[in-house]
Design a protein around this nucleic acid. Structure first.
Lengths: 211, 211
DNA sequence: TATAGTCCTGATCGATTGATCAGTTCGGTG
DNA sequence: CACCGAACTGATCAATCGATCAGGACTATA
């Protein structure tokens, strides 16, 4: 109900500002956190007036929620469209396909991991909303897969939640901390997704389920 | 030269404020980032006037650097005092002792991992200072150990920097994202250090070097 | 007692914050 | 043409930001 989508000509510019605001806000929230990001800096990067930002999204907090909806919709689309046919695959295979999808998504846009790690460190109302709206469902789905893999002897035993956050930490950190890694190592080469997948495979799977 | 330490009675209060400011600032910077943390909120939590904060540390940025010095001094002290005799141990053994030390330090205070991950996501002047002053030395030392372990066939082959940041990510995330993990899993049990060490052992070491 | 120096507070500065509102532009519909 | 609503801007609000400054409280030295 925010914008009519039945006309064609106006599409090029109408709603374009809204898209630019959303992208600029995602980058700002991911790097500086909620309080650290200012609506004026976001508006400046999106090349719009600051008042327009509060016209499309009625408050800074509502803008933040819109950014989160946008980011996780992108993640779900990515994983759905990049998954091969898995109807007759075992839990370990299905798990590693999800892992590889998450790695590639983080490689294409590290902001999602930055957002999770910047909001997850304090029990705020925003974190509660984020968990209820987006995080809990993903966690439950992947952990169920991990448990089935453990029962089949293909996935390493142990707390599924710990395994879940461990592979997310590995897959996300390599990209979300890219500026630090480049400075520390003195080398700004890009990390290879395959190397990360191999690491996570060694972490999650038993020797029995290699393949 | 900051405070004289030769009297006894005044000790209880003198210099105590400086310590409280440092601790409050560490928590604030770790959770909200540099811009997100306000000197007034820090002073309020430390139960001092905001102007006292800028009396002991001449600016917000100088306070931030003092907090970093304090945190990494604590890490180095912890690791030094918790290391057994390693004169005749192999690189894999020495590496895992360092890993366990880092795990236990994160368990006792998750702020160090929060600080690294909140500052490392943008190439600011603060990150450059942090890398030059504290991070690069640790990275070089541990990576040299990883390389020696790889040459001995005890440590998994691959980019040492990737292995370094992977084990730091696993060891730190479990504690720095404790609020999120508790909300997502609906269970606020504390993560066991031994379970994390076992995971990292599977990640870093080859089957050849078990033990 | 007088002097000096450290620790600390309250008041206040200009700049910036999120938010509100009046007014302008413009394409679509009557 | 007239009108309406959506998109957008500039001005401005109170609140908060980091920082500065004058001065009080206190101890040690002379």
């Amino acid at each position: 109900m925010v914008a009519r989508r039945d006309t064609a000509q106006a599409e090029m510019t109408t709603g374009d500002a809204r898209r630019r605001i959303l992208d600029a806000a995602r980058r700002a929230f991911a790097t500086a956190g909620f309080e650290g990001a200012s609506t004026r800096a976001i508006a400046l990067e999106a090349s719009v007036a600051q008042s327009l930002l509060l016209y499309h999204f009625k408050s800074k907090e509502a803008l933040w929620r819109a950014v989160m909806d946008d980011v996780f919709a992108g993640l779900n689309d990515w994983i759905i469209h990049h998954q091969p046919d898995l109807r007759d695959a075992g839990p370990a295979k299905r798990l590693m396909v999800l892992v590889r999808g998450f790695i590639d998504f983080c490689a294409s846009d590290a902001d999602i991991h930055r957002i999770i790690t910047v909001e997850g460190r304090a029990a705020t109302d925003r974190l509660k909303w984020l968990v209820d709206t987006h995080l809990r469902a993903n966690h439950a789905r992947v952990c169920a897969l991990i448990r089935r893999g453990q029962e089949a002897g293909e996935v390493r035993p142990g707390d599924p939640t710990l395994l879940y956050y461990s592979f997310i930490a590995i897959a996300g950190t390599a990209f979300s901390l890219a500026p630090e890694i480049a400075l520390v190592s003195g080398d700004d080469r890009l990390v290879e997704a395959q190397a990360i997948e191999d690491l996570i495979r060694a972490l999650l799977l038993t020797d029995f389920a290699t393949g």
